[in-house]
Design a protein around this nucleic acid. Structure first.
Length: 393
DNA sequence: AACGCCCACAACCGCCGGTGG
DNA sequence: GCCACCGGCGGTTGTGGGCGT
């Protein structure tokens, strides 16, 4: 638990950096690299703690930082990723390569969060605020559950994506040694440092998530809301990521994620609470790898076997992944209307409530599934298309 | 002009995980 | 295994500028 005492030292300067200090720091790092941050200040002649230097560098002085206003596209990225990842700013920042996590965090807190709130959207759940009042049919709860699960799992995806990218940068991957014949969890673990496969080889994980977004698991759990007590009777949602080899052996998912207040509880099918995040996360490795290769699902000609709700394998060569008007996009449309950059004033949030679709509680499940599907399609496409060489930027 | 309020952003703080001795 | 160090992360605070009264 040893906390770094570096900033406790008396005589160290705090507060805003002066141009002179910036210059010193820049000059030093350009010449020597930062090396040990702790040792840097004295070497660079700065009366700052190393931590302060590091923050100044990473958040401000680094040459590959884009400053200034966020574009609408960047806003969209942030909102979508925030819906997925929550306040994992560093993970979000990996999809906005020239923005720092601090900048994104500030922008969220000062702009986007308020905008969503104004529109009647809960900036935490990304759902209309009154949605919870209309959730007697359980659909909204299920959606929240789904969202929660996805946030949880995608967090790992993000982390791994970043690792992959970093290792990619570090070691100009020239080898082609990697094969993906290993079991899923081993594949990426082993492959992370040395190489990235140049071609997709693990479509099964994509299939899994795809099936998920197509409503398979969601539908299969419809009307299954009475068997859990935790969190208020929310139905089970089986984790797609726990079923990586599902399409291979057609076995039912081994794990179930139940909605909880703050995080998912993984429950084994034998009823034991397992609570092993790693087990679920392992199966995301392949997904990460696939996503990192920038493949567009909608245009993929890969043969995808999709597990549909009743458990059979569905050939999905027609790739029904269409439409980008997910919930977040609707949000963004509403946001664009209310944005001060737009011509009109605040739209009153009608776009948002309209975007929820399922909010009126008419029991029309298909709208609900469509919204969810499109929403996640949109996010997944984003994840797919936003490695460092993404055309987005 | 002076004051107060609000906002945006830079910077700090505290905690955590990883790592090496 | 323990401990100290280091770097990273997310939350919070401080500060300066803009704006309204």
């Amino acid at each position: 638990m040893g906390r770094s005492p570096c900033c406790d030292k008396v005589g160290l300067k705090k507060g805003p950096w002066t141009p002179e200090e910036d210059q010193k720091l820049l000059a030093y790092i350009e010449e020597h690299g930062h090396g040990s941050w702790r040792a840097l200040p004295s070497k660079a002649g700065l009366q700052r703690c190393g931590k302060s230097c590091r923050l100044r560098w990473t958040n401000y002085l680094r040459p590959d930082i884009k400053r200034g206003k966020f574009s609408l596209q960047e806003e969209q990225t942030i909102i979508q990723l925030h819906a997925l990842l929550g306040n994992r700013w560093s993970a979000i920042a990996t999809h906005l390569p020239k923005r720092t996590d601090n900048e994104i965090k500030n922008y969220w807190n000062t702009h986007l969060k308020k905008r969503l709130t104004k529109m009647g959207i809960d900036p935490v759940t990304h759902k209309p605020k009154n949605d919870t009042l209309l959730s007697s049919d359980g659909q909204s709860k299920t959606a929240a559950n789904l969202s929660h699960m996805a946030q949880w799992e995608s967090a790992r995806l993000e982390a791994e994506a970043r690792l992959v990218r970093e290792s990619k940068l570090r070691s100009h991957l020239t080898t082609s040694s990697s094969s993906n014949n290993k079991p899923s969890s081993e594949v990426v673990s082993a492959a992370l440092p040395p190489t990235i496969p140049s071609s997709r080889s693990s479509s099964s994980s994509i299939d899994v998530l795809k099936a998920w977004t197509n409503g398979g698991w969601l539908k299969s759990n419809e009307g299954n809301n009475n068997n859990n007590n935790g969190g208020g009777g929310i139905g089970d949602l089986e984790s797609p990521t726990s079923t990586l080899s599902f399409s291979e052996n057609n076995a039912p998912p081994p794990l179930t994620i139940m909605a909880g207040g703050g995080g998912g509880i993984i429950e084994g099918h034998n009823g034991n609470n397992v609570k092993e995040e790693g087990k679920v996360y392992d199966s995301l490795h392949e997904l990460t790898m696939s996503a990192m290769e920038g493949t567009s699902w909608g245009s993929s000609h890969q043969h995808h076997d999709v597990i549909v709700g009743d458990g059979h394998v569905d050939d999905d060569d027609d790739d029904p992944m269409v439409g980008e008007e997910g919930f977040t996009n609707l949000l963004l449309n509403a946001a664009a209307q209310s944005d001060d950059r737009s011509l009109s004033e605040e739209g009153g949030g009608d776009g948002a409530s309209g975007g929820s679709g399922d909010g009126d509680g008419d029991g029309n499940g298909s709208d609900f599934y469509e919204d969810n599907k499109n929403y996640w399609n949109s996010i997944l496409n984003l994840v797919n298309s936003s490695p460092s060489d993404s055309p987005m930027f």
